[in-house]
Computed example of a mutant assay.
Amino acid sequence: MTTQPSQPAVRDEDHFIQVDGGRLFVRDWRPDTPNGTGLPPILLFHDSLGCVDLWRSFPSRLAAATARRVIAYDRLGFGRSDPHPGRLALDFVAAEARAVVPILLDRLAVGDFVACGHSVGGGMAVETAAYFQSRCNALVTIAAQAFVEDRTLAGIRVAEQGFQDPDQLARLAKYQGDKARWAVDAWTGAWLSPEFAGWTLDAALAEIRCPVLALHGDRDEYGSQEHPARIAAGRGTMLMLADTGHVPHRECEDRVVEAIRVFLARG
């Protein structure tokens, strides 16, 4: 019988960082071992209705498994960050990489790093890897969209209708507070806008210079396997997760953590 090596304990720390428009809430997980100090940290980007708390146990598990520092933050308008000052611009995916990430990396004293994002956060991770070619050592996307697909829009319309139910909005408000309605409207309004219909990650993907792992559930209601195929094409590995929907890091956390651990260990 093979004995699995014990994983280090993980300690976390919270910060608030000022950016244009307000303060961002940041949580930082660090494995309690000197072996992880020289490894580039993992920067997590949440999805369209996400926040630090909705990553749940995933960041801590990831930090322990990879012996790397893991950093997650709430974008403006989400979680414990300040309210967003207005509407999302149509270039909000690329703008996060260019306007916010540089400040985070500077304030958190991060040099090289790994970008990892879920859903639209995966798009932000792609844009970040393209923008920081010399510093992003690896890219991981989880259920990311690479273009506007009919399946994606259909899923968003179903969700939009569901959030007309006050009980469903109240459940989201447990994480988003009084910003919950803004978060829903920002998500649906951006993606369903006719002006957003031509959005793709193609230009950013062409600039990627690091290894790529694109994870995707075979039952993802917000995107077909064309998304991870496009993200990984000529750049890395696409891994389809069986019997999995749009939130693999909660639905099959063990498989996702192990897949990322193995990918990063190959270095």
Rank of each mutant, 00 (worst) to 15 (best):
T33K: 13
R23N: 13
R27H: 12
R87I: 03
V93Y: 08
F113H: 11
D47V: 01
W55M: 06
E96W: 06
D12E: 15
L54A: 09
G22A: 05
T66L: 04
R27F: 14
S60N: 08
P34V: 04
R56E: 12
R87D: 14
V101S: 01
D106V: 01
P31K: 07
R30P: 00
L90S: 13
L39M: 08
L24A: 00
P102Y: 08
V26P: 08
T66Y: 05
P59S: 10
L43V: 15
A64Q: 04
I17P: 01
R80Y: 14
Q18L: 09
T66A: 02
V101P: 12
S81K: 07
W29V: 07
S60C: 08
L108E: 02
G50L: 07
I17E: 03
I17C: 06
L44E: 02
V101A: 04
P102L: 02
D12G: 12
L108K: 07
R80H: 15
S81D: 00
A65C: 01
Q18S: 09
E13P: 01
S57T: 13
D20L: 07
V101Q: 06
F113L: 05
F45C: 03
G77Y: 11
I71W: 06
T37V: 06
N35E: 11
R87T: 13
F113A: 08
R87M: 11
L44T: 02
R68G: 04
S57V: 05
R56H: 09
P34W: 03
R56T: 03
L76H: 08
P41R: 07
L24H: 09
A97L: 14
G21T: 01
I103Y: 11
A109I: 06
D12W: 12
G38I: 00
R61D: 15
T37D: 12
A94P: 10
I71P: 05
G21F: 00
D32L: 13
A64Y: 03
L39S: 04
R11Y: 05
H46S: 10
A89R: 15
R56L: 03
D91R: 11
V100H: 07
L43T: 03
H84D: 04
V93N: 03
D106G: 09
L44D: 00
I17G: 01
V93I: 15
V110A: 13
V110K: 13
W29H: 12
